[in-house]
């Protein structure tokens, strides 16, 4: 799969002296959904803003569909759509007028049929003559997406697209994003909702303190860095762990009523059968058991706050 965005040795230091990006290298593949995760102030929005032309890089290069974003900015920018984090809209404009404006601004001739399709896809057609200030926050978010899609971009940046929207709209957005991907649009999203990345992204990139900490396929990341947990509800509570089981990563919880076995999904396949056999040898009986896998959120927190990295 070819790369549609190629970022090399990108640095950004603002006039205030704050360094937002440090030697960032990143490739986004054509047609994928890429989630960029990172805590507040990690550099996500700066990175997106540089690619879209809103912020100047201090050094480094960015190619969008093979076009340098500075030297060949017209070709690069015409391929990119951006939905920024803030709900920045022209309050007094109508929905249809603002979407038509965006299409023209990006150099495309008027195409009422296409604008109608975009508005219908986003359930905005009935609101097309309404002023933006009369819309709800969720509807304004849809208008922002419609504006970003107005010039038929191949690459779409969604900066925190579902921040502050209700569950229904979030589900609608996810469906929209999947629909766009099916039409061949590459989608790069930043999000605080880790389950969003887990649910939608083909690959995940984690950025912290302006550095890319890790880029990995979402499933592989969870397989590699995820942890598994086996929780046994004991028939009789234990005061302490038997000495014979001290070589295993076991702990007692719930006042000795639960025995918990945690293992690394990558390094340790977790010999559950062996554990159960040894418990039987020790005469420890259990009434119930359940297993769970750590979420992407836990992996993310581990990466960002504990500095854990994938090999």
């Amino acid at each position: 799969m070819s790369n549609v965005i190629q970022i090399e040795r990108l640095n950004k230091t603002y006039d205030s002296g704050f360094t937002a990006l440090r030697d960032v290298n990143l490739s986004i593949r054509k047609g994928e959904i890429f989630a960029l995760l990172g805590p507040n102030g990690a550099g996500k929005t700066t990175l997106i803003s540089i690619v879209c032309g809103i912020v100047n890089a201090s050094s480094g290069t960015v190619l969008a569909d093979g076009h340098d974003i500075r030297r060949d900015y017209r070709a690069a920018r015409s391929r990119i759509g951006l939905v920024p984090q803030e709900l920045s809209t022209d309050a007094f404009e109508t929905v249809q007028a603002t979407v038509t404006f965006s299409r023209g601004l990006f150099g495309k001739p008027a195409n009422p049929a296409y604008v109608e399709r975009v508005l219908r896809d986003l359930s905005l057609w009935d609101k097309r003559k309404d002023k933006i200030m009369a819309l709800s926050g969720g509807m304004k978010r849809r208008v922002m997406i419609a504006k970003a899609l107005a010039h038929e971009p191949d690459i779409l940046f969604l900066d925190e697209p579902t921040a502050g929207v209700d569950v229904e709209l979030r589900r609608d957005m996810w469906n929209l994003v999947r629909g766009l991907r099916e039409r061949g649009v590459t989608i790069i999203l930043t999000t605080h909702y880790i389950e969003e990345a887990e649910e939608m992204a083909d690959r995940v990139g984690v950025i912290n303190h302006g550095e890319i900490v890790l880029v990995e396929r979402t499933r592989e990341l969870m397989d590699k860095l995820g942890r598994k947990e086996l929780r046994l509800q004991l028939a009789e509570p234990l005061a302490t762990l038997p000495e014979a089981l001290s070589d295993l990563p076991l702990s007692l919880e719930a006042e000795g009523q639960e025995l918990v076995y945690r293992f690394d999904a990558r390094h340790d396949q977790g010999d559950v059968a062996g554990l159960l056999r040894r418990l039987d040898e020790q005469g420890i009986a259990f009434r119930d058991l359940r297993t769970r896998e750590s979420s992407l959120e836990e992996i993310f927190v581990d990466l960002v706050h504990n500095g854990r990295k994938g090999d």
């Binding site: 032309g53 017209r74 690069a76 920018r77 920045s88 601004l105 990006f106 504006k147």
Partner: peptide, 14 residues
């Protein structure tokens, strides 16, 4: 002031 300048700055316009 409203933040909509992002659109002009990100457009393929000189």
């Amino acid at each position: 002031f409203t933040g909509t300048i992002y659109e002009v700055l990100s457009a393929p316009i000189s």
